[in-house]
Amino acid sequence: MTKDALLARLADAVISGKPDLAKEGAHEVLKNGVSPMAAINEGLVKGMSVVGDRYAAHEVYLPQVLMSAHTMYAGLDILLPAIPKEEVADKKKVIIGVVEGDVHDIGKNIVKTMMTAGGFEVLDMGRDVPISTFIESSEKEKVDVVAMSTLMTPTMDGMKEVIDGLKESGYRSKVQVIIGGPPTSPTFAKEIGADHRDANAQDSVANLKGVFK
């Protein structure tokens, strides 16, 4: 099978939401000496971009997007460890999580997927993430972006506490802080000192690509 055919197979696996095909495809590209970075960017990510575009156009919906994301990660689990360290050195690093007191993470997971597909290295802290974890991990992991999400009103103030903590630690000036979730707004982002409020996953990636271009 040619390199192009192998990459197309990976992209198709993601588009059709078939994790087993992505795993098989990932092993196949490595066996055939294809660069894992190329397999990610021209295979998995290309497929996820197609799904992202179809989702934005309301041609596919959350079940398909989630399965495609699951499929992409199945391939990434095999391909990422095979990338030489020097090739990932210049990737921008994002820490993402749902703030303390909230466990609704479906939106966060979609943003994480699109960021990964957009070329960012994403550290997912999960949900109900303590304020101190955001602050301490940001500095420890030397991240470029802190991304926080919430669905619930009472937990919104936790976002401000993270930003205040980043200011106190002196790390705020080194990161972009982005927030998202239904109760948030650009006005709220401005009030708490965040850099951007993301309207959706595509907006989130487009904003960051603009910031880091």
């Binding site: 939401g17 079940p63 398909q64 989630l66 399965m67 699951h70 993470d105 479906i106 997971n109």
Partner: peptide, 11 residues
């Protein structure tokens, strides 16, 4: 869990 249900709708 919403994510589980949505993926199970598919599979």
């Amino acid at each position: 869990g919403a994510e589980r249900v949505f993926m199970d709708m598919f599979t």
